[in-house]
Amino acid sequence: MTSAGTLVFTDVDETLIRPKSLFDFLEFFFTGRYGDAGARHARATRQHLARLQRAGAGREEANRAYYGAWRGQPAGEVAEWGRRWFDERRAGGAFYLPRTRAALRRHREEGAVLVLVSGAFDAVLDPIAADIGAAHVRGTRPHLRDGLYTGAVIGPPVIGEGKRAAVRAVLRGYPHVAADDCYAYGDHLSDLPMLTEVGRPVVVGGSRELSAALPAADVLPY
């Protein structure tokens, strides 16, 4: 049972929600906003990221490269499209992974503070946070100039070690909460730094690598 004031950290893509939000939203925005030209841009971005990964780029490098696709887009408009994306996907059903969603609901009902930790950005994460009642969002921060995305990011992406740093930053704001009493949910080996920062890690899905690295962790099947 969750104690009052406990922090519960969760990854988002394929841990809390089914789609890979960054790719899904990329296509949703650019195709919806710019039609065929936008669809080509989204497709070219995905191909570029796939080439980077085939060449050995890590998730952090790919995450940085992803935000280059948003160069010149107005942040306010993107945020509005993010709310539209969420509303459509949520209404379509099968958006949340039901076991994770139910677990987070129980945590919150028992007094926990929910924290989203993801390589995604606020346009995607804020509507999800509002819907599930997450108090904090720690995502990759695209750089803005005059309200437009520049294609760069501020600080490290919230992937791998960036997730560890995000957990520690939130915990510093809750000095009365012991990390050993906190939970974290993740599905991929890149979530390991986040999961090892708390006393109650939960492996979502069937990652053998992650389960092997955390043999004492609870497992939440899909």
Score class of each variant (00 low, 15 high):
49 L>G: 14
64 R>D: 04
3 S>P: 02
59 R>L: 10
75 A>V: 04
169 A>I: 09
8 V>C: 03
106 R>A: 10
65 A>N: 05
160 G>H: 10
149 Y>S: 05
50 A>I: 08
184 A>P: 05
133 G>L: 03
27 E>F: 15
124 V>M: 15
152 A>I: 08
58 G>F: 12
79 A>D: 14
148 L>V: 07
212 A>S: 07
166 A>F: 01
81 W>D: 04
180 D>A: 09
159 I>A: 10
91 A>C: 06
111 G>K: 10
15 T>Q: 13
133 G>V: 03
209 E>K: 11
160 G>N: 12
118 S>L: 00
37 A>C: 07
51 R>G: 10
182 C>I: 12
77 E>V: 06
109 E>S: 13
92 G>H: 02
39 A>Q: 13
126 D>G: 06
141 R>G: 12
31 T>P: 09
34 Y>P: 02
204 V>Y: 05
90 R>M: 02
208 R>N: 03
59 R>Q: 08
32 G>L: 13
16 L>W: 09
29 F>I: 02
194 M>W: 09
75 A>F: 01
115 V>A: 06
161 E>T: 14
74 P>I: 08
64 R>A: 07
166 A>C: 00
181 D>E: 14
128 I>T: 04
164 R>W: 01
34 Y>D: 14
186 G>N: 04
22 L>C: 08
196 T>R: 15
38 G>L: 10
109 E>L: 12
93 G>I: 00
217 A>I: 03
